[in-house]
């Protein structure tokens, strides 16, 4: 029997054709799943979502009532995290971008430490927060413990976005400022910060998004209590944790969980879109992954 010989060019055409088909299939699949997920959330959430859902506190373990106290706790945790993390992160970024040479030992150590910190799983932050803030420092299960734990998580992203933003400011600014006899402090406040503002804002928004999305780090730091918090030392349940609790531990909690998930996802999509607008033109990957 004569062997059928397929010419190389035809074989390549077949390969190209099938690769291309597979690629389009993959792209379609990913888009379809994304749409499916969003449609599910919107469909499930809209049925239960209402104005009173946002303004009432949860009753009956969250089966009825709303998420008002949860939103307040979430906001407080977020504020603590930002107040603690921003000064540290931006101070580090200014130092790394403006004051130490890029390959200095100090800079390398700080960068490496942040790089590793960025990869630490959130459950490990939860363990650390529980051991350090809740028990060692004696804050207990509280909004303060949760916020400070989140602050540690936010340090890498806030620092790296701010550093990238400041590095993107052209050197001509610094040289002109020096030529005019401005101190570096004045140049920083009047030139570099305003010029890097969009990057700082983008980093801030991404940090807020991360903090809102976080669950595992808050499980044993800010706790489960769904009452309206009276002080920062009260336990308070974050929105993401509320979704988890409703869907896993509360039979019949699916409908409010859908609504809470829709609230959280809309918030995050809004925040992330805004961040991307600010980050437009900056190196996006550095900021987003």
């Amino acid at each position: 029997m004569p062997e059928i010989i397929i010419p190389v060019s035809v074989r390549q055409k077949i390969r190209d054709f099938s690769l291309q088909g597979l690629m389009y299939l993959a792209v379609l699949l990913v888009s379809a799943v994304f749409v499916w997920l969003l449609a599910d959330l919107v469909q499930g959430g809209m049925a239960h979502l209402s104005w009173t859902f946002l303004t009432e506190s949860p009753r009956d373990a969250g089966r009825s009532g709303g998420i008002a106290s949860i939103l307040v706790s979430t906001l407080l945790i977020l504020l603590i995290a930002l107040i603690a993390a921003i000064p540290l992160a931006w101070a580090t970024a200014v130092l790394l971008a403006e004051f130490v040479p890029i390959d200095s030992r100090f800079g390398r150590i700080v960068r490496f430490s942040l790089y590793v910190l960025a990869g630490v799983p959130s459950i490990v932050f939860g363990l650390f927060g529980n051991a350090f803030f809740s028990i060692y420092l004696g804050f207990g299960f509280s909004i303060l413990s949760g916020g400070l734990t989140l602050a540690c998580m936010l340090l890498p992203i806030l620092t790296s976005t701010a550093e990238a933003g400041m590095r993107a400011v052209p050197d001509a600014y610094r040289l002109s400022a020096a030529a005019l006899g401005m101190t570096r402090t004045a140049a920083l406040i009047h030139l570099i910060f305003p010029a890097a503002a969009p990057a700082l804002a983008a980093g801030l928004l991404i940090g807020i998004g991360r903090a809102l999305a976080e669950t595992a780090a808050l499980l044993f730091t800010s706790g489960y209590v769904d009452r309206m918090p009276d002080s920062l030392l009260d336990s308070g349940r974050a929105l993401a944790l509320h979704i988890f609790d409703l869907s896993m531990n509360v039979p019949g909690g699916d409908m409010p969980a859908y609504a809470a998930a829709l609230v959280l996802v809309s918030l995050l999509l809004g925040i992330n879109s805004l961040a991307m607008m600010f980050a437009h033109g900056l190196q996006r990957r550095r900021i987003l992954t």
């Binding site: 999305a213 993401a240 869907s247 987003l288 992954t289």
Partner: peptide
């Protein structure tokens, strides 16, 4: 458009992925 979609997918919190996985 597709890149934006992927970036938005990156922003969806893990608890929501878990919830969707659990219910769907």
């Amino acid at each position: 458009v597709y890149k934006r979609l992927i970036e938005l997918l990156a922003g969806i919190p893990s608890v929501v992925f878990g919830f969707w996985g659990l219910t769907t």
